[in-house]
């Protein structure tokens, strides 16, 4: 049984009110179904506004879905703010991009890491102290840092402190939203290695949200590529990123700047990422798609399974089905 299951989940926000027009609603996440297995990592990639962060919040029950259902450990996700949801929070944790914003500037590192233990009533004072010392060691922070405040730490040390706090309650699921994007390359590698080690040692399931395909490939077992609230391609990381089938995934993969690769092979998409409030008809990607055909503007391609086990939402990836239709 999967640890986390999303079934046709959608999240709609009320749009901007116009003076004489009805407010159009924005579908930030639209009909997403996916599963996360215990101990495995799902990477979610896409550009700004594609709904990847909203999806992360739906997975943690921080927001209720407008449609569809989220199940954690076989039971429906309780509504946010309820007692049942609070209890579950010890088993699911979130790590953000900006560690300074996630930490309380007035508390020492040790106090911050102990806080979830206090909130969930885990252990007595002595047990908590021992647990905090262990967590600091696990994330590679020296004990001399325990008494410091967040401003006295470097960016990499802060993100380690945030991780130690997230791991304090022994969660089964960790949702990381751009956890290493603000870090320099040499520090990023340290934190990525540590995340992979901790996840394997503890058997945590991880959802890794990032725009950085190289880092996603490094940590993920499977990958979901999002465009304007929908998953356009999903499958094993090695397949999806090595041999992408959806034209959008192809463009994303080819746009990854890699030292030593010839830039001429790059697919440059025209146009900007579209506005979620003005979703194009049919396949939302068709105005920017280099291979679009007339049917793409009329029909939304469903996410369908391919022979190799991945799923792709593109009319051209399933030519026999759609040409006939």
């Amino acid at each position: 049984m999967s640890l986390l299951r999303l079934d046709a989940v959608a999240r709609t926000y009320p749009g901007e009110r116009r003076l004489f027009a009805k407010a159009a609603s924005v579908r930030a996440v639209d009909g997403v179904s996916l599963t996360v297995e215990a101990g495995s990592t799902l990477g979610i990639v896409g550009e700004s506004g594609c709904g990847k962060s909203t999806l992360g919040r739906l997975m943690l029950g921080l927001e209720p879905p407008s449609e569809g259902q989220v199940e954690f450990d076989g039971a429906a996700m309780p509504a946010p703010g309820t007692d049942a949801w609070r209890k579950l929070r010890a088993r699911m944790q979130l790590v953000f991009q900006d560690p300074l914003g996630a930490l309380d500037r007035r508390l020492t590192v040790a106090r911050q890491i102990a806080e979830p233990l206090v909130i969930h009533g885990i252990g007595d004072a002595a047990a908590r102290r021992a647990r905090v010392a262990q967590l600091l060691t696990d994330v590679g922070l020296g004990e001399d840092l325990a008494a410091r405040h967040p401003h006295a730490l470097s960016g990499g040390q802060r993100q380690r402190a945030v991780l130690a706090r997230a791991l304090a309650t022994d969660p089964a699921l960790l949702v990381c939203d751009e956890p290493v994007s603000a870090l320099d390359v040499s520090i990023q590698a340290q934190v990525v290695n540590m995340l992979v080690d901790l996840q394997q040692a503890r058997g945590i399931a991880m959802v890794f949200i990032s725009h950085d395909l190289k880092v996603v490939r490094q940590v993920s077992d499977s990958v979901a590529v999002m465009y304007l609230g929908r998953i356009v391609e999903q499958g094993a990381a090695d397949w999806v990123l090595a041999a992408p089938l959806h034209p959008y995934t192809r463009a994303l993969v080819s746009a990854v700047p890699t030292p030593g690769r010839i830039a001429r092979e790059r697919i440059v998409l025209t146009g900007d990422p579209p506005n979620p409030a003005a979703r194009p008809s049919g396949c939302a990607f068709h105005p920017r798609c280099p291979v679009a055909v007339p049917v793409c503007a009329q029909q939304t391609p469903p996410l369908r399974a391919m022979a190799d086990g991945r799923s792709v939402a593109c009319h051209l990836a399933h030519p026999n089905l759609d040409r006939a239709a």
């Binding site: 390359v185 040499s186 520090i187 990023q188 590698a189 340290q190 990525v192 290695n193 992979v196 395909l213 190289k214 880092v215 490939r217 490094q218 990123l241 090595a242 993969v253 990854v256 890699t258 030292p259």
Partner: peptide, 17 residues
Amino acid sequence: LAALPDMVGPRRRLEAI
């Protein structure tokens, strides 16, 4: 350069500085 993850080939542990 060793700290950068690759896009192709087998995944290896990153060599952090």
